[in-house]
Computed example of a mutant assay.
Amino acid sequence: MSTATLHIDLEAIATNWRSLASIAQVETAAVVKANGYGLDAGRVAQHLAKAGARQFFVAVAEEGVILRRALGAGPTISVFSGHMAGDAEAIKGANLTPMINSVDQMLRHVEALPGHPFGLQLDTGMNRLGMEPAEWSALRDIALAQNPTLIMSHLACADMPDHPMNEAQRTQFENMTQGLDIPRSLAATGGTLLGADYHYDLVRPGVGLYGGLPFAEARPVVTLDIPVIQTRDVAVGETVGYANAWRAQIPSKVATISAGYADGLIRAMGDKAQLFADGVAVPVIGRVSMDLITVDVTALPSTPASMQLLGPEQTVDDVADFAGTIGYEILTSLGGRYNRVYHI
């Protein structure tokens, strides 16, 4: 088989969820947007539901419909983007809970689906989604009269524990929700790790469930083994790959492996990346192409049948560093050609 194999440890995801729930000591939801960070939202959510999760968050209503089919009735599925035009049928049919972001969304929701559950999202300084203080002040009494199920906001700098924005947003959230007897949520993964002041009634970890920073103690979730298609000897002075990007300085052995940027292995990582063969690091050479990557295996006593990009020696955040990006992008980019093997 020439396609790479992506191993996904569902029990590791559940273990990470339980660990974050233990830290928070409040209700702990799970963010499964972007198809469970690229790992299959249905499978991930089903396993987390068995572990005890009862609330899930997705980005858009269409994701919520798919997730409801996987979960069945019971768990709450909240939609960060709120109630967009054309969403009423999906929200009602899949029993989704939109997180209302504006006056327009509030009006749309109560007119189209009177009495249907909803939450509220407030902007405490990130300037992305949610009602700003002035808008919230004007809408507050009307919104509260409709009995929202949750009030949330989102931290901009939670992965930087000492950043003053964290406390500024927490203070703003306190001011905007003071005196309300409604469940509140401020923390995703990073906020959960900031401490009890940020936990409120519900935390909603995302990337930490999947083994990503800032949850450094997370169990690894993904392993990526990439087959070697061909090896060749390269003489001194010969080049490898597009644009003659690598030139042999000594007699070398080069392996070509079966994955590239079409599989989510970002081109920008280039020759800064490395793979592992039986625990030994070997460097990527030349350019990452659409379907192939070349690796210098001169130092190996023999060429293995496959090499590992993600695994015990190298996390999604390590690979992200090669490309100057973040672990989120690596996870959500993992390609559709992989042979996916799930472990429970």
Rank of each mutant, 00 (worst) to 15 (best):
N101W: 00
L209R: 12
L10W: 07
L107Q: 13
S2Y: 05
I13W: 02
M106S: 07
R43C: 01
V240W: 02
W136E: 06
Y37R: 05
C157H: 14
A51F: 08
N166P: 14
T124M: 03
D87S: 11
V222K: 07
H109D: 06
L300Q: 04
T231F: 00
T177M: 04
D201G: 03
R340H: 06
T15M: 03
E62Y: 09
T15S: 12
G74W: 10
A145L: 05
F173R: 08
A245C: 00
N16V: 08
L139V: 14
F56W: 13
Q146R: 10
L310Y: 03
N166A: 04
L224S: 13
A90F: 01
P161M: 03
A45D: 04
H199V: 11
R337Y: 02
L300D: 07
H154K: 09
H199G: 08
G212Y: 01
I330Q: 10
P133T: 08
R170Y: 05
C157D: 05
Q169F: 04
T3Y: 06
H109F: 04
P251F: 04
D291C: 00
G179Y: 02
V240K: 01
E27Q: 15
M290S: 15
F215H: 15
L120T: 09
D197N: 12
A61F: 07
G36H: 05
L20F: 09
D263Y: 04
L6C: 02
A299C: 10
A70R: 05
A112N: 09
V297I: 15
A29V: 09
I229V: 14
